[in-house]
Every structure is written in C-alpha cells, then in structure tokens.
C-alpha cells in the first residue's frame, strides 16, 4: 500500500539518544536528499508517528532510554505502520543476535555512510 505523499518530500525519522550521532545521521539523511525529523528516544518517535502520516523511513538506534528500545520501536512500526521502511543501527548488538522485523536493514556502528545512503535511496524508490 503506497502512501500518498507530495513528490520530492521524502521524510526520514531519525531516532538516536546521543546528540552527536543524531547530528551526523541528520547530515547523512539530508545529504542523501531527504528531510530529517528527529527523536531522541523511541517513545518520542511513537508520538511523532502517531501525529504525522508522512514519514517514509524510520532510522533508529537500539539501546536508548525510555519505556521501549529501538527493537520494540521497529516491531511497533512494522505492526502499526506497515508501509514505513526501517533501518536499525547499534554499536552493542550484532546482527546475528537480533530478530529483525520484516523489511528492515541493520548496520553496525560505526556505519558506512555510503552504504546507509544507498539503502535510503533504495528504500525510497519502492
């Protein structure tokens, strides 16, 4: 189910508690030609997702303070907003230890910005 959205306004929700890393992610997303929306934890991300329907991709860290972590956020997104694409990143976890939701991509931190950029483009082209 494709969401109707204005052309040229592709929005990525960045969820990251560490400000420096969030800043870098914002740069990366904007350099890739997207609009970045920021949340500093998963609870805030859910509130944003509940309020607006134009988010195309969620780009989230895993270990964050709050009532739910990035993995639970990803599961909630897959469940409640199925069209949204998901990118998960973590410095602590390895991909082999994780139970990733469908249509999600994992990057270990520090991530390869070129690869993340390519993944964003690929997801947006669906």
């Amino acid at each position: 189910m494709a969401q109707s959205r204005p052309l040229g306004k592709r929005i990525v929700l960045i969820v990251e508690d560490e400000p420096l890393l969030r800043m870098m992610a914002v740069d990366l997303v904007e350099d890739a030609g997207f609009v970045a929306v920021e949340a500093s934890n998963a609870d805030e991300a859910v509130r944003i997702l509940e309020m607006r329907s134009d988010i195309r991709i969620v780009f989230t860290d895993i270990d964050m303070p709050g009532s739910i972590d990035g993995m639970m956020l990803a599961a909630a997104v897959r469940d409640r907003w199925p069209p949204i694409e998901i990118i998960i990143t973590s410095g602590h976890r390895r991909m082999t230890d994780l139970d990733l939701p469908a249509r999600s991509v994992f990057f270990a931190k520090p991530y390869d910005t070129a690869k993340v950029t390519a993944t964003l483009h690929q997801m947006a082209s669906h």
Partner: peptide, 19 residues
C-alpha cells in the same frame, strides 16, 4: 561495547568536523 560506541562518536565528530 564502549569502545564500539567511541568509534561511532569519533566517526560523528569527524563527519561534523570534516564537512
């Protein structure tokens, strides 16, 4: 894990500094 986080921070600082 802390070391990995530090690497991620170094990357972030570098990407900001080298913009």
């Amino acid at each position: 894990h802390r070391l990995k986080n530090t690497f991620a921070m170094v990357q972030a600082i570098a990407s900001q500094t080298l913009r």
